[in-house]
Design a protein around this nucleic acid. Structure first.
Lengths: 143, 143
DNA sequence: CAGAGAACTTGACTCGTTCAAGAGAACGCG
DNA sequence: CGCGTTCTCTTGAACGAGTCAAGTTCTCTG
């Protein structure tokens, strides 16, 4: 893939060392958005069979801290990761199957909602989560 | 307390049996909004010293299912509970100390944001979480 | 007041995630 | 190009919030 070098450069730009696990994790997150750590571990092992789960956990933390991936943690779910970091978008979570779908920001720039002007609370992010039922999980609702 | 009978009636209205643990948990959630399960267990034990943690977990699940309390689960935090269920409000979470503050809904009725009209996804709740730093945790920011 | 079924106690256990120590690899510098 | 420092990965154990399961106790109906 031509993006292999790009990923290396991306890491370097973030002052991170370029290692195979990091490249593989980055690629896995891009290829499988909203995946759990376990899913990502499996995906990474397709590329590097021997990676330890700890390595993936470490890499994900580093990438998250460097803002190269974004961590999502809907209630009742394990942590999930996605590579869309430069735009402001939200998520819809299905209560039935747990599937997560991207939802473009309904208002505009982040934080896309008016912040509480209260007692010195400084908002740096407004997280919006839509809870509901996806098409596959609502067969009974025959409109 | 005069609310003792009210709480019993509240449970009965929800078709739930009235037990001391349930009354105590309900009172604890009302008295300590945004508390963790562990905190609630301690609060309940002030009233009924012998309650098992399992009982509190059970009661919280039942009350949550019956919509008498609401469960909040910010990323990186344990589950927390509150008794404000009949209005639509959101939360501000401090990245420093983890404190949670109520924020009245900025738009109006729930779900207070336009839903994704996409592929048959039916939204029943829009959860908004403001992330930032509370007054106590930002002493360095001397405007 | 007695029976049925829900609720609580006790104690073990699961599972995602983190901690810790040592071996190995990436990168800057000579 | 090779060396050393420092960060990264491996291995294996540990943690902790929450759940499961079996048995006893209590609430409520008739």
């Amino acid at each position: 893939m031509a993006s292999g070098q790009d990923a290396g450069q991306t890491l370097r730009n973030a002052s991170l060392r370029v290692t195979r696990p990091r490249l593989a994790v980055l690629a896995a997150v891009q290829a499988h958005p909203h995946s759990s750590t376990e899913t990502l571990i499996r995906a990474v092992r397709d590329d590097i069979p021997g990676v330890s789960h700890q390595a993936v956990y470490d890499v994900l933390r580093v990438l998250t801290t460097a803002r190269l991936v974004r961590r999502i943690e809907p209630a009742g779910s394990v942590a999930r990761y996605e590579a869309r970091v430069d735009d402001n978008h939200h998520h819809a979570v299905c209560r039935g199957c747990g599937a997560i779908t991207d939802v473009d920001c309904v208002v505009g720039a982040a934080p896309c909602l008016s912040a509480p002007d209260d007692v010195g609370f400084v908002v740096d992010e407004a997280e919006v989560l839509f809870w509901g039922t996806c098409g596959d999980c609502s067969p009974a609702l025959t409109v």
